[in-house]
Design a protein around this nucleic acid. Sequence first.
DNA 1: TGAAATGTTGGGGCG
DNA 2: ACGCCCCAACATTTC
Length: 482
Amino acid sequence: MPSPVIVWFRRDLRLADNPALAAAVAADRPIIPLYVLDEVSPGIRPLGGAQRWWLHHSLSALGRDLAARGLGLVLRRGPAETVVADLARQVGADSVLWNRCYDPGSIRRDAVLKRVLVADGRQPASFNAGLLVEPWHLQTGAGGFYRVFTPFWRALRARFAPPAPLPAPAGLPAMSPAPAGDALDSWALLPTRPDWAGGLRDGWTPGEAGARARLARFLADGLAHYEAGRDRPDRAHGSRLSPHLQWGELGPRQVWHAIAYRAASEPALDGSADSFLRELGWREFSQHLLFHVPSLATAPLRPEFDDFPWRPDPVQRAAWAAGRTGYPIVDAGMRELWYSGWMHNRVRMIAGSFLVKDLLQPWQTGEAWFWDTLVDADHATNPASWQWVAGCGADAAPYFRVFNPVLQGEKFDPRGAYVRRWLPELAGLPDDCIHKPWLAPAAVLARAGVRLDETYPRPIVDHKAARARALAAFAHIKQKAA
DNA sequence: TGAAATGTTGGGGCG
DNA sequence: ACGCCCCAACATTTC
């Protein structure tokens, strides 16, 4: 029997447009598909709870898709640089193929593995499945990397000719007998005692088929309203593709092509297609940023923020995380996150601004909570976005830009439909006070069955005073920088 | 991918 | 009729 090829799946859990898999098929040798649960290699960030749930179901789906083509997905656990090399020795694989990741932990580990494989006389090769353009292919005129989004996006669009996505391979040659692996259930990725995943099951279908269905639905119903409706959490015009992209159940090139193809057939969609692709661009921008700035997840990009007078307070943090701040739009978002593993993008900005500016909690605190609870938690996007909100990132919102949670609620959820959905205890309030229940007349509160401090908290900080405090804190570091 | 404070303008009420 | 003032509406600046 010819030497088999190992295809090491990581954050590319799909068969279509998967260059590593396509290269294995082209080699015309038996294929061993592998996934390694690596929680121990140095620099590898352990998965959050919501991601573990997603990973279980996505691997389960990938396993079924492979089985339908005659392949058994091999599951192993441990430090990938030894687990993969050991398997290659065990089965005598000459070639090991994977698609690249861009977080510093993966880069370091994959480089170690590559050296080990080469020393063993094997041929490792890696591919791009996860980005439109890889970081080293996009530089400024001066040879550096882009720190501002708009020129980044302009350059990418000008230079990027999207290659046509690769089709899913029809047949895959198997190795017999297949190497042994773990049972997925033995990894205990799913929550038990308590099982908090009910909302995740209601809202999501992990796996390549689920991702394609989500994309198809967005193209049919969402895209046309995207430009006008994307900032409205009370409407459902978002794509909800982020977790599928994070796990690579769908690649950005596939999304790009689908959007462009759809827009080409209907010129009225141009504006929406552009603004959606721009969001794909922010994802790309964050990935590039992480590649160039490995400390992105832990250290502020603007060094003056090292001295920012944060006021870490577990009680305030807990009130925020539980959706008990007393500001309905913030609390609705935090409850949506806890229940469904996701939050509308506009509300992420409002809730993030509130934690960082109104409560003066370090942005890393919020980043960690989102990492644990978001199904789309991403090594690059999550910290880059928190740095954006906190004002310490590249091309960030200036620190003095403080969201007013009442005005934002009234502007983007004008009828309060989003708040009522996630905060049923406020559902009886009329529209004109749904975003500021503490200002409602006693009779209105009574009629709605709201008892402040009992059924719903009063604001844990006064926004006007909190804004002034945040600006004073900012003045403190600005003085130091000067 | 803000909000609040401050400045300016013009219509209309009023003495 | 005229000028004064108030203030809403809009623009600009500042945080």
